[in-house]
Amino acid sequence: MKEHHIPLTAGEIAALWTGYMSDEMSHCVLRHFAATVEDAQIRSVVEYALTLTEEHLAFKRERFDRERFPTPRGFGDGDVNLEAPRLFSDKFMLFYLRQMGITGLSAYGVACGCSPRADVRAFYSHNVHTTLELLNRSTDLLLEKGIFVRAPQFPFPETPEFVENAGWLSGWFGDRRPLNAVEVTHLWLNTLTNALGRSLMLGFAQVASSADIRKYFIRGMEISRKHIDVFSSRLEQDQLPPPMTYDVEVTTSKEPPFSEKLMLFHTISLCGVGLANYGAAIGSSPRRDLAMDYARLASEVGTYADDGAELMIARGWMEKIPSVPEREALVNS
């Protein structure tokens, strides 16, 4: 019996195409990490992550060929300089790898839900397991080295408690209740991701040669610092310590290990992750003042991402995501 070929759906195309771009970017970044990392234990985690990106790219290229779907240009040898000195410390690389694991788990979970085809689902199901392994390896090593950044702890309630009035949802001025555990978690995680992003922007600004692109990265640093201050102040209002930053983990090198195209793409991708995190925080934070904070800051991130996309478009670096045919243009041509 002849097997019936089922074309890729929009959800599968979206996951494969965007994932391919991210994997090629990550492949360049991880190749430079592998060339410059000094700690043998961290090297092993870098090399594991590198094998995952190579595995992902091989699968996607094969599927693109089979479906006669144009493979994105993405990134390659011209976007990474393996001879450039290290721009980030080993410690930064390890935190970066852990964040890769967190972000990957979320992306692959969504991809599984958007992929009815068995072969694509099997691929992303496998990726969930291997990315979880990356998260566990990086977390275990951070713990072993004593540098894992734990969220705050506070005393447990003695008995179950119930909300007694609608003021519990407020957060304005004198009617502000203490943060709950879910709100603390989102504030903490968003502070950490902004701290990581700020250090990445510092490194990118340090090696960018184009004045407008350097200015863009500096602006990203300032936005991240502002968001760190907002989230940290919310934690400090309840006598909770904010997490550390990673600025000291950026070296003094001025030689770019990555192309400006790759660094811009990486920055815009981080904005997407940040927007998703803020959206999740809004949905999980009953205190209205926190929701207003996240909405306001998300708007700022969205504008920043748009400006980065315009820089890429102006230089001819922005690949177009596959879209539905422009029927009106076809009819009128």
Rank of each mutant, 00 (worst) to 15 (best):
A14D: 12
A14L: 07
A14Q: 05
A15S: 15
A15V: 12
A15I: 01
A15G: 03
L16T: 06
W17E: 06
W17D: 04
W17T: 03
T18Q: 13
T18I: 00
T18H: 09
Y20H: 10
Y20L: 04
Y20T: 08
M21C: 05
M21R: 14
S22F: 09
D23S: 15
D23L: 07
D23R: 09
M25Q: 08
M25D: 05
M25H: 02
S26M: 11
S26H: 09
H27C: 13
H27F: 11
V29W: 00
L30Q: 06
L30F: 10
L30V: 05
R31I: 02
R31F: 10
R31K: 15
H32K: 11
H32E: 11
F33R: 02
F33T: 03
F33A: 07
F33W: 06
A34T: 03
A35F: 07
T36I: 00
T36N: 08
V37L: 01
V37A: 07
E38A: 11
A40I: 12
A40F: 13
A40P: 15
Q41N: 13
Q41C: 04
Q41F: 03
Q41Y: 06
I42N: 05
I42R: 10
R43D: 04
R43W: 02
R43S: 13
S44C: 00
V45C: 00
E47L: 05
E47G: 07
E47M: 09
Y48P: 06
Y48E: 04
Y48C: 01
Y48I: 00
Y48Q: 07
A49D: 00
A49Y: 04
L50Q: 08
L50F: 12
